[in-house]
Design a protein around this nucleic acid. Structure first.
Lengths: 162, 162
DNA sequence: TCTAACCTTTACGTAAACGGCAATCTTCGC
DNA sequence: GCGAAGATTGCCGTTTACGTAAAGGTTAGA
């Protein structure tokens, strides 16, 4: 029909995906086994074939694992939301009813919001830890100032009884 | 000598520590086994005895584990710094030489800074993920607006070729 | 068409982070 | 000074997140 319109961007096999993302093939298969991922297709001879959406999803998983430090179980929770979101795109295209379409997209937004909330909670806890370190730092610096000024320790409080 | 000055705040045994912090005794012993912790003393009959510093250290470990999602190995790295910091307090009290004291405190500040840097890197990665989620959210909302307005999908880009 | 490179499932192995016994002390209140 | 409650070390078991090897089928190029 139209030889210059590659609507199918080309599907990748597992090793190509793995080296592209810095994962091992075993890891990818394991994630599929856990239900975190389902490659879009299989070849004639049953080879797994991955499309760009699959790659995006794997990058998302890797980010949650490496950067956010989530367990694969927690990632599974977040991805249940993601999965529904992806499925919703199909459901979305399958209907023309504006009300239904609105509901699907609104639901998707809710899921993204929940993901963000989960990430934000983690950020908040980390920032609390940073603040505490800041307290320690200030404590040490005032100590340092005392020394530079030749002052006595003045027993910089350590959280003891008043 | 002075019956109203309890300089030793009272040492706790492992079960008291565990229920105070929401850990198990097994976990605390395991952390000691890994070298993340060394209880300040042992009783006559070899019971582990913990002081407030030990508790603070355990809370720190728990925070890094639960909140920050660090592995115990990573926590070990951060705690090496912490350990030196604690030892430096003793070294600090042991000397009166201002130059040496200055060096000890300056070193301690460097260690705190490294801890903070490690935490900040993690926060930055998480915030990048939050931003990406924000992008997805905006994408969905413009979609929603199209629907509300009765517009056509306009093929909201999905990262394909131009 | 043949073969080297790649893939499949199956299955056993492992490091990390504990859980949960057993067998044996310690502590402490009555 | 005794008995229940709690602690000790030692050791085996478990879950998570993969590594790795075996035995065989698939793909693609010369």
């Amino acid at each position: 029909m139209n030889p210059t319109a590659p609507t199918q961007p080309r599907l990748l096999r597992i090793q190509e995906v793995a080296s592209e993302l810095g994962l091992t093939t075993r890891t990818i298969r394991y994630y599929e086994e856990l239900g975190l991922l389902k490659p879009v297709a299989r070849s004639e001879g049953d080879y797994r074939l991955f499309d760009p959406d699959d790659l995006e999803r794997l990058r998302f998983i890797k980010g949650l694992r490496d950067d956010a430090g989530f367990s694969l179980a927690e990632i599974g929770q977040l991805l249940d939301d993601e999965t529904v979101r992806t499925r919703n795109r199909a459901r979305f295209r399958a209907t023309a009813d504006p009300a239904e379409r609105r509901a699907i997209v609104a639901d998707a937004i809710g899921r993204v919001d929940r993901q963000v909330a989960s990430l934000r909670r983690k950020v908040e806890r980390l920032e609390k830890m940073i603040d505490e370190a800041g307290d320690r730092r200030r404590h040490l610096e005032s100590h340092l100032a005392d020394i530079e000024a030749g002052r006595e320790p003045a027993d910089h409080d350590h959280g003891g009884t008043p």
